[in-house]
Amino acid sequence: MKKQVLEFISNLENERRRSDSEALVDLIEEESGYEPYIHGSMIGYGRYHYKYESGREGDFFVTGFSPRKQHLAVYIMPGFSSYETMLENLGKHKVGKSCLYINKLADIDLTVLRKLVKASVKDMQKKYQCASA
């Protein structure tokens, strides 16, 4: 699976996005404990099954990222309400509901990103039965 991820990244046109993505592959694998895999245009780590009160259910990754043209999107699935202090110390970024948008890794503190990924994975593991892909 990791070989496919690295092939996917090698096809990125932007050299900085490619090198940042290569670094993120290893960083997130180390902190999550899951091997990376391709999930559409995203790179996922681990899997969990969700079911909403509406009855909608499915499977998704525990954490992951997408090397988009404008920025890197790192998926912090529990959202950010529990991680405000980490975000304050992260560096230049923006957030969506569960997406952390980073222009380039040089803009942020990688030690803080490691802690954020690790904490979010632990929170997901407390709430869901998480497994490797």
Results as ranks from 00 to 15, higher is better:
A131E: 12
Q4G: 10
L72V: 07
I9V: 11
F80C: 05
R47G: 15
M77D: 09
Y75C: 10
L100Y: 11
K127E: 12
G64S: 01
I28V: 10
S41L: 00
Q129K: 15
Y50S: 06
V95M: 09
F60M: 10
S19R: 07
K94M: 11
N11H: 01
E22Q: 13
Y48G: 14
G91Y: 03
F65E: 02
D109L: 09
K69F: 01
S66P: 14
L113Y: 01
C99Y: 01
Y34N: 11
K115A: 03
K69Q: 09
L105S: 14
I38L: 08
G44P: 15
V5W: 00
P67T: 01
A73S: 14
I76P: 13
S54A: 14
Y45M: 03
M1A: 13
G58E: 07
P78H: 04
E35H: 13
K122R: 14
S132T: 12
V74L: 09
V5R: 01
Y101E: 02
G58D: 08
K97Q: 12
Y101N: 07
S19D: 07
K2I: 11
S32V: 09
Y48W: 09
S41Y: 00
A119N: 15
D20F: 03
V121G: 14
S32W: 07
S54H: 14
L113V: 00
F80A: 05
S41A: 06
K3C: 04
K115Y: 00
D109W: 05
A131F: 13
S32N: 12
H71S: 05
A119P: 15
T85F: 00
E31Y: 07
D123M: 04
G55L: 04
F65C: 03
I28M: 06
F80V: 04
V74G: 07
T111P: 02
G46M: 11
D59F: 09
Y128R: 00
V25S: 04
G96W: 02
I108Q: 10
M42G: 13
V5D: 03
Y34E: 06
E15W: 09
H39I: 01
H93W: 08
Y48P: 15
K115M: 00
E22C: 11
L105K: 12
Q129W: 11
P67V: 01
M86F: 01
Y50I: 02
E88N: 06
E84Q: 10
A23F: 10
S120K: 08
P67F: 02
Y48F: 13
S98V: 04
G40Q: 02
Y83D: 11
V62Q: 07
V112F: 00
Q70C: 07
A133N: 12
A73F: 03
I38D: 03
A23M: 08
E53R: 10
P78S: 05
I9N: 11
E84N: 05
D20N: 06
S66T: 11
Q129L: 12
L12F: 02
K69I: 01
Y37P: 13
S21H: 09
